[in-house]
Simulated assay, not measured.
Amino acid sequence: AGEAIITPADKKHPPTIPVTGAAVTIGVELGCAATPQSLQINGNLSNAVEGSVTPSIQGTGTVSGNGSGGSTGGQGGGSGSLSITPGLSATAADTVTTGGSLTGDIGPGTTRDFPIATKPLSGRDGYVVARETRVSVDGCLGGAQIRSYATAVISTPLGENSITTYGRTLFIDRDHPGAPPKLKPAK
């Protein structure tokens, strides 16, 4: 909110130069700690898949023989067994590799002025009030800050005169926004 009242400094001797115009303006200043001038992001991603298959064969065998004989000849016998077991084993591996870099130049921060409302004075006094006004800042590295202001301007045939008052600076950090300011209820 901003208020302007035109009163003579010495009421016994009013000014001889007439006031031709006056106004009160309210707004905010948004400041940024640093701004990116040029940024370049480079990166790579690779994926390697490896695999192998190994066949195998195992075998076991037994042979047995028996016989009996005499002067007229003999008799013989035998037996054999064979066992074969086939096998197959496999392994697989997957390797993902990433890399990257961020390069660029960072410039000094900037401050921008955002007037919200202006009220020309048609009499001796006037005021401006703004509630729930939204402002935003883009491309800011680090924290930002905001400060409200009110400016009163008076014009005469000889020149212009202005005065500006500023509110408390509020620091806004993306990761630690802090508690909102405590407001006093209106009377």
Rank of each mutant, 00 (worst) to 15 (best):
P36E: 00
P36L: 01
Q37P: 03
Q37V: 02
S38Q: 05
S38M: 10
L39E: 07
I41C: 09
N42Q: 04
N44W: 03
N44Q: 07
L45W: 12
V49T: 03
V49F: 03
V49A: 04
E50N: 05
E50R: 02
G51W: 04
S52D: 14
V53A: 10
V53S: 11
S56R: 15
I57Y: 13
I57R: 13
Q58V: 15
Q58M: 12
Q58S: 14
G59M: 11
G59S: 09
T60M: 11
T60P: 10
V63D: 09
V63T: 14
N66C: 04
N66T: 12
G67T: 07
G67H: 08
G67R: 06
S68I: 04
G69Y: 04
G70P: 06
T72N: 12
T72P: 09
G73Y: 02
G73T: 01
G73L: 02
G74Q: 14
Q75D: 04
G76S: 14
G78N: 14
G78M: 11
G78A: 13
S81A: 07
S81C: 07
S81I: 12
L82G: 13
I84W: 13
I84F: 08
L88N: 10
L88K: 12
L88R: 05
A92R: 02
A92W: 00
T95A: 05
T97A: 09
T97I: 15
T97D: 08
T98N: 07
G99F: 12
G100L: 09
G100H: 06
G100R: 09
G100F: 11
L102V: 10
T103M: 07
T103H: 05
G104W: 01
G107R: 06
G109F: 12
R112I: 15
F114A: 14
A117Y: 09
T118C: 09
T118V: 14
P120H: 12
L121N: 15
S122I: 12
S122T: 13
S122E: 13
G123H: 03
G126I: 09
G126Q: 07
V129S: 07
R131H: 03
R134Y: 08
V135T: 13
V135D: 05
V137W: 04
D138R: 02
D138K: 00
G139I: 06
C140V: 00
C140A: 01
G142Q: 05
G142R: 11
G143V: 08
A144G: 04
Q145M: 06
S148N: 10
Y149C: 13
A150T: 04
S155D: 01
T156C: 07
P157N: 01
P157F: 00
L158H: 01
G159Y: 00
E160F: 02
E160N: 02
S162Y: 01
S162V: 07
S162E: 05
T164H: 02
T165R: 04
T165M: 07
Y166E: 08
T169M: 14
